[in-house]
Amino acid sequence: MENEKKMPQLNPLKFRAKVFDQMLSEDTGYSNYSYWRSTFRTFFKSKAVVVLVVLICAIILMSFIYPLVSDVDPNKVALKRKMWNNRPSWEHLFGTDGLGRDIWTRAWYGVRNSFLLAFCIALSDVGIGMIVGAIWGYNKKLDPIMIEIYNIITNIPSTVYLVLLAYIMNTSYLTLFISMASRGWIVEARFFRNRILSIRDSEYNLASRCLGTPMRRIATKNIIPHIISLIIMEAALCIPYSIGSEVFLGFVGIGLPVDAITLGNIVNQGRASFTLHPYQMLLPTIILCIITVAFYVIGNKFADASDPRNHV
């Protein structure tokens, strides 16, 4: 054999039995892997994500701090004509609108109000959706009824609720919230129902049932940890959608009253005078787009990062 030729000098004493070490045989290479750490590491690996997260945090922080520290009234109408439609300057960073209001100030109020509204809608859609989805997923009997409800709710135009509510309670943040949240929850519920259905019948969940684990602990230990990343993703994706809807409703003219300072209203008011004073629309629009794009990207990237298959 050619192998034997190149064999090195061996020590005959090495050919003795060695004591067996149980621990050595069990060595699988402890990887020190943690799901959440890996998720965040994967998430922040992309430079774009880091930039967007920083940007969005800065914008939101600014929108909450600015109204507290600034003494400029966003609704203050200038009586002097020369204060109207001013181009951006050091005094008015984003210029002034047709009534001489400072657009920079209005933009931050708008970001704050729009974000809060969108955040509440996201919270209610995902929150209610998850709870209903869980109940739906756990009760097969509910299936036909829930699908019927889904069909009905998604078939009634949300403008119907909006206009109706507006008549009853006047247009306000609340009516806008109710009418927009009135159909989002069922869409989310259906999404969560499908996910929970697959968890429900998985073996580890059956094992918990065999052990007699109470529902409360099954929810907190078996279900929520597996769908928390979905909750975050859905909530993040809800925000650009809600802001978009608000802009749309403002455009149609059935959104919030004109004196409400939201991004939707600012953009729509700016649009009217766009040909003459494009800066009035452009600058707030850029902020709005940064917010929606950032949340969209963050939601999607987080979904990717939370999938263990993508963990690096």
Partner: peptide, 18 residues
């Protein structure tokens, strides 16, 4: 896809028109 889905349609449609 990001542009179309994340930015409110009204905004980009308006700019396209103009």
């Amino acid at each position: 896809i990001l542009m179309v889905r994340a930015i409110p349609s009204l905004i980009y449609l308006f700019f396209i028109q103009v």
